[in-house]
């Protein structure tokens, strides 16, 4: 009972970006995953990548408001990592895993969600990358750092907020175009 309660608290912490919760989950699960990856032709670097991707899967899952995993965090993370690593091995045309656990859950839906989210993340990253300066910084300042137009005009050197705003919309149109071109190609 207590362990269950603990797990929900951890997941709730994760959902609100609580560093302590992230720390705990990381600490309690990383070594196991690293062992899995290294025993299966991976490097420490691969282990870090795969583990962090699984953390993102878990994060996105709890972000949607569901704190019920129906299994231990460890089992979930392991199952996700296993799938992620199998996928990478598949790309290098190797298929089987050497592992000594049968504590697995089905994570198909989560993997599907994640694959979509990951594609979207990469598309946005690419769109942002293709934008060039000062457009990128301007949009980041407004949409991500949530600065107001007055501040932005000041720090970018626009004479007034109105000019900065016009520029921001022009940049936004370009970003949307870059993003949606990829998005449409992807959906086809």
């Amino acid at each position: 009972m207590k362990a269950e309660h603990n797990q929900t608290a951890l997941l709730q912490g994760l959902a609100r970006n609580d560093k302590k919760a992230i720390d705990t989950i990381y600490k309690e699960n990383f070594n196991l995953i690293q062992a899995l990856i290294i025993n299966n032709n991976g490097s420490t670097e691969d282990a870090k990548d795969v583990f962090q991707e699984a953390m993102i899967v878990l994060y996105q899952k709890v972000q949607s408001g569901s704190f019920e995993l129906n299994c231990q965090i460890k089992t979930f993370v392991y199952s996700v990592c296993r799938r992620l690593w199998l996928k990478r091995l598949m790309q290098q045309s190797r298929y089987s895993l050497h592992e000594n656990t049968d504590d697995l859950v089905i994570v198909d839906d989560d993997m599907e969600d994640h694959a979509k989210r990951d594609t979207e993340f990469k598309m946005m990253e690419k769109a942002m990358g293709g934008l060039g300066e000062p457009c990128r910084s301007l949009l980041e300042a407004f949409y991500m750092q949530k600065k107001n137009m007055q501040e932005i005009a000041g720090s970018f050197g626009y004479t007034n907020a109105e000019n900065a705003k016009t520029q921001k919309y022009k940049c936004l149109v370009r970003l949307k175009k870059l993003f949606f071109t990829q998005y449409k190609n992807e959906s086809l």
Partner: peptide, 27 residues
């Protein structure tokens, strides 16, 4: 979502470095 994920990735990297420095994970 992009910004949220990006920030989360940063936190993960920081956590990794922090835990590795303290010897709490093998890295």
């Amino acid at each position: 979502r992009f910004e949220d994920t990006r920030q989360f990735k940063n936190i993960l990297d920081e956590t990794h470095i922090h835990l590795a420095e303290k010897g709490l994970i093998q890295s």
